[in-house]
Design a binder for these strands. Structure first.
Lengths: 175, 175
DNA sequence: ACGTTCGGTTCGGTCATTGAACCGACATGT
DNA sequence: ACATGTCGGTTCAATGACCGAACCGAACGT
């Protein structure tokens, strides 16, 4: 393995002299952003990430460890504590929102799969993160996510999949 | 190889029922977002991407081919035509801006490496893409990028690296 | 005409990812 | 007490992706 605890110049985006390259060293690997997305959706436990994402558990172990080491997630105290987003992790919300917005516009012929509304006033949230009604920049914690027209009803009976089929406030734990 | 020209359900983020997973199928692989970033910076030619990113040329060939196949880039006509961002590609700018903003805030102790200003009125552009002075949402084509306090002066003498050390308007070709 | 650059392709070695099996600690049921 | 299941991982062999270097024909510079 390449990193974990040692020096923190992994891959070799290093020479790029660009903050995006640094950011991608942390969240640019396969599965990582999907793990962070699930954390925004309220997933906190190893087994829930594993079942919902269907990622190999060895990879999940490595990614969660890296995200904790980089300060994106933190471990809940206790023997079987979950993984929670830190401030640094919650600051990734604009990145995820922008990616979802792009995917909705160009990769979702039946329209958005998930809609994001401002919990305060109920207005739809624009692609750039502003409430269409009150104009405020809306944080993840004030965002309510509901299934959109492109949403496919889930087939499995997992707790996580089922929970995401109903309107939910972001960051609220699923269990 | 897994895709290229055939059906378009590569990897297996497929079951995720989320536009972000679809987006990551296109731009989530190693190097891809850095290639797109360079395209915003005005890079158009295979050899310039290759030199500036120091990516293996076989990988660059594959990534450029995939981005063209997905409609993010298009090929300039002619024998040695460059790679240009399409509308779909230019729509990725908010994603890159958000990533750069996050990296600047959490991975750049000496401050931002690149500053983004509104070409119209000269105001700094906020992390969410608005001009601090005039309040408008600024498109990439109206953005001027300059070196910031965290910028390290380049060592090499490549055309691309040298060009990025001076203020430049995004999407303007480097040569 | 000649060397150089461009835009790749091919190749072997290395590294990462995958799916499956395995594991101890803990909880639950009977 | 005992069995059975869940949780949070680790280990392993096989596959796939990536890397660096070499090679190649077509276009360009002079």
């Amino acid at each position: 393995m390449w990193n974990h605890g040692g020096m923190v110049l992994p891959r070799d985006y290093t020479r790029q002299n660009c903050s995006m390259a640094r950011a991608l060293e942390i969240v640019g690997e396969r599965w990582t952003l999907l793990i962070v997305r699930d954390a925004f959706f309220g997933v906190r436990r190893f087994s829930d990430f594993s079942r919902h994402l269907d990622v190999p558990r060895a990879v999940l172990t490595e990614r969660l460890g890296l995200l904790v080491a980089e300060g994106v997630l933190e471990r809940e105290p206790g023997p079987r504590g979950g993984y929670l987003l830190t401030d640094k992790g919650r600051a990734l919300w604009p990145v995820l929102r922008a990616l979802v917005g792009w995917g909705d516009e160009y990769c979702a012929p039946r329209g958005p799969r998930r809609l994001f509304d401002h919990a305060g006033c109920g207005g739809r949230i624009d692609p750039d993160g502003r409430c269409r009604d009150c104009g405020a920049a809306v944080a993840a914690a004030d965002t309510v996510m509901s299934p959109g027209p492109g949403f496919d009803p889930p087939v499995g009976d997992e707790v996580v999949t089922a929970a995401l089929a109903r309107p939910r406030r972001l960051l609220e734990p699923i269990r």
